[in-house]
């Protein structure tokens, strides 16, 4: 299944890109995807990273074709 990954802030900086489309194995959990990418791009301060699947935070949903998974560093608005 194809999933779009979006990276923001310091995470985009570590990854060297703000978006990519990955072909993932069916049934891969959000948690595993998060760990895999954190390792791949050596993202620091991993416990502060929040994941939004189709703009919803930290839901342990099953990933499916066409999902948008965003890797969000700590918020700094205001």
């Amino acid at each position: 299944m194809k999933v779009t990954l979006k990276y923001f802030g310091v995470i985009a900086e570590s990854a060297g890109k703000s978006e990519e489309v990955l072909e993932l194995q069916q049934g891969l959990s959000v948690r595993d995807l998060k760990n895999q990418q954190i390792k791949k791009y050596q993202i620091q301060d991993a416990e502060s990273v929040q994941i939004a699947v189709n703009q919803n935070l930290d839901k342990e949903v099953e990933l499916k074709e066409g999902d948008e998974v965003a890797f969000l560093p700590p918020f700094a608005g205001g």
Binding site: G9, P74, F75, G78
Partner: peptide, 27 residues
Amino acid sequence: FVEEIKANVPIFGKEIFEDETHQWKVN
């Protein structure tokens, strides 16, 4: 509004220093 915005809106801030280096802001 202010507290909710700071806590829950996915906005990111790059603090740029006078020497053009930077670090990422955390609320």
